[in-house]
Computed example of a mutant assay.
Amino acid sequence: METTSSYRESNRARLRQALIRAARDLTVEHGWESVRMVDVATAVGVSRQTVYNEFDGRAGLAEALAVSEVRHFAQRIRTELFAQGGDIRSAGYAAIVMTLEEASRNPLVRAVLTSTRGGADELLPYLTTRSEIVLTEAGGVLREWAAAFLPDTSPDEVALAIDAVIRLTVSHIMLPRDTPAGTATALAEVFVRLLQP
């Protein structure tokens, strides 16, 4: 019985990922405002109702797409952070520059930033007014790094530094003022000042 249940869960997870990939591809190709649930269903070869059952509508699909992309970014951030060890400046710089460079190249991020349709189910709020996904996923990776390399730093200082550097990085994705390297250098300095007495 347990094998049947895990088989079903595995199939459902594969279906969910296929639907998210299809939504991502369609968003990159046509913009989120043109993505319809029926198009996602057709791309995967399932019924439109299957997509609705999985995501509870367009807003749920938008959230799943945002979560998937943010988790991908968070894992890359983790790799950059841990590769630098406990050097706060180097770790901050590596993670921030990777994020900014990837965001500037990422076709989904570009599609999100140039989306023209209004509404609560748009993707842009996941970087702005509904950024808890970004704060949770990226923050979790940064807290893991801080626990490993800065165990004596107070949790309040870590929380403040993480929140500030994530919010500043996202603001520079939205409205860049410098090259990724220049911005990463400045924000890494902020990170250092917040984490070192």
Rank of each mutant, 00 (worst) to 15 (best):
Val165Asp: 05
Asp87Met: 04
Leu15Val: 05
Leu194Trp: 00
Arg110Met: 09
Ile20Cys: 02
Arg76Tyr: 06
Ala120Cys: 04
Leu19Phe: 01
His72Gln: 11
Ala64Met: 10
Asn11Gln: 14
Gln84Lys: 15
Leu123Cys: 08
Arg12Lys: 14
Glu63Thr: 12
Pro151Asn: 05
Leu123Arg: 13
Gly92Ile: 07
Ala74Gln: 09
Ala148Ile: 02
Val67Gln: 12
Asp121Cys: 03
Thr153Tyr: 07
Gln49Tyr: 08
Ser68Pro: 02
Thr50Tyr: 06
Pro151Gly: 01
Phe149Ser: 00
Ala147Tyr: 07
Ser10Ala: 13
Ile96Val: 12
Ala64Gly: 07
Ser6Gly: 00
Leu195Phe: 01
Glu9Met: 12
Arg167Leu: 10
Ala184Lys: 11
His72Trp: 12
Ala43Phe: 08
Leu113Cys: 03
Asp39Gly: 01
Val70Thr: 13
Leu175Ser: 12
Pro176Gln: 04
Ala91His: 09
Ala95Ser: 15
Ala74Arg: 11
Thr169Cys: 07
Met174Ser: 05
Leu108Lys: 04
Asp121Ser: 14
Val170Met: 04
Val35Leu: 05
Val44Asp: 06
Asn106Cys: 11
Gln75His: 13
Leu15Gly: 05
Val38Arg: 15
Val190Tyr: 10
Ala62Arg: 02
His30Thr: 12
Leu168Trp: 04
Glu2Ile: 10
Gly118Val: 09
His72Glu: 08
Ala111Asn: 04
Ser90Phe: 03
Leu65Ile: 11
Asp56Phe: 09
Thr4Arg: 14
Pro151Lys: 10
Arg12Cys: 02
Thr153His: 06
Gly182Leu: 08
Val46Asn: 00
Glu80Ile: 01
Ala23Met: 08
Pro155Ala: 11
Val165Ile: 15
Arg21His: 04
Glu132Asn: 10
Pro125Thr: 00
Ala188Lys: 01
Thr4Leu: 15
Leu61Pro: 02
Ala159Pro: 07
Ser34Phe: 08
Val192Lys: 11
Leu194Cys: 11
Val28Met: 08
Asp39Lys: 03
Ala91Cys: 04
Leu195His: 02
Ala74Trp: 00
Thr116Lys: 14
Ser34Gly: 01
Ala120His: 11
Thr128Gly: 01
Val38Glu: 13
Leu65Ala: 05
Glu33Ala: 12
Asp56Lys: 14
Ala161Gly: 07
Arg21Pro: 00
Val141Trp: 06
Thr153Pro: 08
Arg193Met: 07
Glu132Gln: 14
Ser5Val: 12
Val190Asp: 03
Trp32Val: 00
Val51Pro: 07
Glu101Ser: 15
Ala18Arg: 15
Val112Met: 15
Arg130Gln: 12
Leu135Tyr: 01
Phe73Trp: 08
Val192Ile: 04
Leu194Gln: 05
Asp178Met: 12
Glu54Trp: 07
Glu69Met: 13
Arg89Gln: 09
Glu69Ser: 14
Arg16Val: 10
Thr129Phe: 10
Leu187Lys: 08
His72Ser: 10
Asp121Thr: 11
Met98Lys: 03
Ala83Ser: 13
Glu9Trp: 08
Arg8Tyr: 09
Leu168Pro: 03
Arg48Gln: 14
Leu168Met: 15
Tyr52Ile: 14
Arg105Leu: 12
Asp178Phe: 07
Arg110Gln: 13
Met37Asn: 09
Leu124Cys: 03
Ile173Val: 15
Pro107Lys: 10
Phe149Ile: 00
Arg177Phe: 05
Gly31Ile: 03
Arg177Asn: 07
Val109Pro: 02
Glu2Ser: 12
Val134Arg: 13
Gly45Ser: 02
Phe55Cys: 01
Asp163Gln: 14
Ala23Cys: 10
